[in-house]
Amino acid sequence: MSIKESSEAIFSESPGKIALRTLRRDKRSIISLSILGFIIAISLLAPLYAHFVAHTDPFASSLDATTKIGGKVVPVLQPSTTGLGLGVTPIGPTWNPSSYFLGADGQGRDVMARLLFGGRNTLLIGTLAGIICIVLALLIGVVAGYRKGWVDAILSRLLDVIWAFPVYLLAISLSVVLLTSGLKVGFVHLGPGSFALPILIIGVVYIPYVARPIRAQVLSLREREFVRAAVGIGAKDSTIIFKEILPNIIPSVLVFIPIIVALCMLTESALSFLSIGVQPPQASWGTIINDGLALLYTRPWVGIAPGLLIVLTAASLNLYGDAVRDALDPKTRSRGDA
């Protein structure tokens, strides 16, 4: 390792190192990574918040819970004052971190605690779906582009079919079918409430977005002189793929990661909003927005808060994606700093 490093220092800096340095100095990457770090941290701390600060179970409905406002004990679900006065309205934000900071939802659960737990699920599903999508797309793209011929024909048609199947309709069809009964393939059985289902569904749906450009890139790399030279000296396919082709497509894959994770996260919340993603009593930002739909005009914060977090997270990921792209490909940088 040390020999390699020193030899690089003598000759020149590798493009990867230059990109990394550019990225580290980019204000956008600093800002976006700090925001993401903050959101991930508070989501990871969700159980601690629920247990030690809010003293509540965010998954069990607590219709007769109470809280203190200005020293007075009040019920969390208050009798409706509007209309016939039959229903109940959950309590609004207390802005007091130790109890119902953002108010309660229709089942008397602490929205703030659910929001943090929901963040864990949304981030987890978005990230894992994004990784699955990129790994499979890389595999399909490289194999199709490198093998060409009938392998390429079959894989490309497969991508065409997924591509033409409207993303949400495909995701929704799969979710509706699988979420009620789960998936049984051989020994593997994924239960209806399993997160594996939304992760797989969302991951698969976006494969063509990544696999198509990778395949095109591999096709053109194959014809380049250095790959032909490797073929000429009799290098094995695996050597050519790992030593010659992969290093050249890694930059575009890196650019895709934050963008695809953001996309998967948005899709997860959309599916959960349509109540076919994360299943109750589990929460995600999408399900909380859905909970907030019925309370929109009386307790708007239930629906607004998770949406703000989604925007903040997705925007940070996209901003970071821009910074990565500019660091790797100077062409798209604006003229101001080029």
Partner: peptide, 22 residues
């Protein structure tokens, strides 16, 4: 970036909140 990061269903809800209620 903000535009592509807004979940359309949430934006719609916020629009409804302001135009139908607040």
């Amino acid at each position: 970036i903000v535009g592509i990061s807004l979940p359309v269903f949430w934006l719609g809800e916020v629009v409804n909140l302001f135009t139908q209620s607040k």
